[in-house]
Write a protein that binds this DNA or RNA. Sequence first.
DNA 1: GCTGATTTTGCACGCCGTGCATCTTTGCAT
DNA 2: ATGCAAAGATGCACGGCGTGCAAAATCAGC
Lengths: 207, 207
Amino acid sequence: MQLMSEKSAAGGGLRERKKRATRAALAEAAVRLAAEHGAEKVTVEAISAAAGVSVRTFFNYFDTRDDAFVVMDADAGARMRCAVLAAPAELAPLEALRGALAAEFAEAEQDHELWRLHAEVLHASPHLLARGVGAHMAAEANLAEAIAERLHGADDGLYPRLLASVAHAAVRTSMDHWSAHQEEVAFLDVFHEVFTLLAAGLPAPPA
Amino acid sequence: MQLMSEKSAAGGGLRERKKRATRAALAEAAVRLAAEHGAEKVTVEAISAAAGVSVRTFFNYFDTRDDAFVVMDADAGARMRCAVLAAPAELAPLEALRGALAAEFAEAEQDHELWRLHAEVLHASPHLLARGVGAHMAAEANLAEAIAERLHGADDGLYPRLLASVAHAAVRTSMDHWSAHQEEVAFLDVFHEVFTLLAAGLPAPPA
DNA sequence: GCTGATTTTGCACGCCGTGCATCTTTGCAT
DNA sequence: ATGCAAAGATGCACGGCGTGCAAAATCAGC
């Protein structure tokens, strides 16, 4: 249990803290091992050993081996939801989303090293990028709901869902592009460029 | 080898035809079994048996069990590529894509029953929707390349990739929405509505 | 410390996916 | 037709994934 980044620290009793610590340790071990040996070569056994728990315990925390590479903390969805609802009502939905996501990533980028490793791992195995989309499907649904609520839900659900899924695709593309050009550009710059393109209706680029 | 829809029929020698037949039989068996018992409960063994081949052979055709639920014929990517390149140069890239995809789906919809079952299966296990994105990641790359070529590739690759990934997200959302409202709307209508929203920059919906 | 609840762990089991050796089928030339 | 070489299909063995179950360890409140 040596690995562990003390973020989102104190809350509740010992039990709660230990659970979060273990989860974080597993996720971190997974990413570090993947960055070193390649995600495909990392077994659940290795991850569990590095985090100091049994293999069986790993599966108490993650449904799938791949999930360990992909996780961002569980309540990110809730935060996004609040941020979207709190945004000024006159803002276009897409802009509200852009703001919420930007805030989220700005915070995530605090933990530079892990975030960078994470991006590298995802870039190295595109397979996990897709997995990421799957893992965030629930988040997509939440977002869609929040967006629908913003519009006092007169909609049949197509628009909110489209917005949420396109946003995820945009984020995915941003991360992939950025992790391939980490030295040259900042992630948030790529992110904003992408959302600007979206808002403009994806016109042919000027150059 | 009783199951088999004679689409994309005659081409090349016996070898080629048999291979395509086996592949089609496996894919069709997979979808039918999934529609009946739920995708998660369908084993590779069952699929192979239904298609009349050995389990080992299944894995000669698909890398993954899930791939069998998701596949569309392999050269769809090539067709898309051609269609995108053949589109009039003055068309916006997004519109070129819309046209190519629409043509592709119009053809796929020929085989009504399978297409419907397919959509149902994907809708029932969102997990596979994501998998679909993964499976078409290569297609995404191809599309991106084709798009880049259309723009005589002065771009660093961000725009084409964004366009391709957003298009896939849009298609995914369209299919999901449509399969939940199959009786009320036509797939192509949903599809075009979605692309119209995209082209307009995802503004808040009128209603 | 004792008790009840939660968590961790070991164990057994079945399915997934792959490498390898073998056998069958196909394509082709004679 | 017949034989030969290439390609595909199959069986087998093996390791990793993921789950249900029951026993052991840990935590919370008294």
